[in-house]
């Protein structure tokens, strides 16, 4: 309960304070070599996927070579349908994430600011949160069919909890002295939220945003794949069932790249929004 569920990634913020000397040691002198090695790793993956199916270690029937996947990818990039599908996916993701974030932040601040509300809702939140949002798929299908609402239902449900939990942690982290000072100066509720709660909670909000951005993408693609909403996931389902194997792999690559972009964008936003923050939040270091 006290451990925030925040350590997703290989980022510096998630490293315990004791590790600093070791990161310091392995820095600068060969600044370019990690990048180079990383590129080498990617190249190795591509080569492996080219060679292994060719020499028959992986059955060619199921594992197209990198070049085949590449040309399928290029072929996709030339189709307007592909771009429409990509836009559909991004639209569902962005809209769902926006709704979930706003709802999570508002409810988190309201609930977190009141001790009574926090106590009252704790058990309900702890019960609803771990419910896998895929449980809602049948309901979403029945109510909304393949329109965007069914996708949004899944995305919002999954992303909302990530956000809410982080905001709750953040609001509880507010310095009581600062809170009392603001009260003594007759700050109203909104002013306190704006000048005391929000700056304290912002690092947590950003963690929540990063987590829910990733989850939202997973659920957006899942909805397309399973329910059949238009988008990359649906395109993949069609490609797979029509036996276009190289295209299926290419679309998986697209989904992965989309995920990478989402992660990078979330980290970028986080760094920008917290550039002022003195400690870059030691709190979430597990």
């Amino acid at each position: 309960m006290t451990v925030p569920t925040t350590t997703t990634s290989a980022e510096p913020g998630a490293v315990a304070a004791g590790a600093q000397p070791s990161t310091g040691r392995s820095r600068r002198p060969r600044a370019s070599s990690p990048v180079l090695l990383g590129l080498l790793g990617l190249a190795a993956l591509v080569v492996l996927f080219e060679v292994l199916p060719r020499i028959g270690v992986l059955p060619r029937r199921f594992f197209p070579t990198s070049s085949e996947i590449g040309s399928a990818l290029v072929d996709q990039l030339g189709q307007p349908d592909f771009w429409a599908a990509l836009l559909d996916t991004i639209q569902g993701w962005a809209l769902g994430l926006a709704i979930a974030s706003v709802a999570g932040v508002v409810l988190g601040i309201v609930i977190g600011s009141s001790h009574l509300l926090r106590e009252l809702t704790a058990s309900t939140i702890e019960f609803l949160r771990p419910i896998p949002s895929v449980a809602l798929i049948p309901l979403a299908v029945l109510l909304f069919g393949t329109s965007i609402e069914s996708k949004l239902l899944l995305v919002v449900y999954a992303a909302f909890w990530q956000m809410l939990i982080q905001v709750l942690y953040g609001v509880q982290d507010v310095d009581p002295v600062a809170q009392d000072t603001a009260r003594a100066y007759r700050f109203g509720f909104l002013a306190r939220v704006r000048y005391v709660t929000w700056p304290t909670a912002l690092p947590y909000v950003m963690t929540g945003l990063r987590l829910s951005a990733a989850v939202a993408l997973i659920l957006a693609v899942t909805a397309e794949l399973v329910i059949g909403n238009p988008g990359i996931g649906n395109r993949l389902a069609v490609a797979q069932s029509s036996g276009a194997i190289a295209t299926s792999y290419a679309l998986v690559v697209v989904a992965g790249l989309l995920g990478v972009v989402v992660n990078l964008a979330a980290r970028f936003v986080e760094r920008r929004a917290l550039s002022w923050h003195p400690s870059q939040r030691g709190e979430v270091a597990l």
């Binding site: 290989a10 790793g41 199921f62 794949l225 989904a255 995920g259």
Partner: peptide, 26 residues
């Protein structure tokens, strides 16, 4: 770690349900 990091980042970023259709083939 340096060698594998971008590859791992990529695999981690793939929404896991997407691999179901592929693994179904195999």
């Amino acid at each position: 770690r340096d060698f594998l990091e971008p590859v791992l980042e990529f695999f981690r970023a793939i929404p896991p349900p997407v691999i179901v259709p592929i693994l179904m083939l195999v």
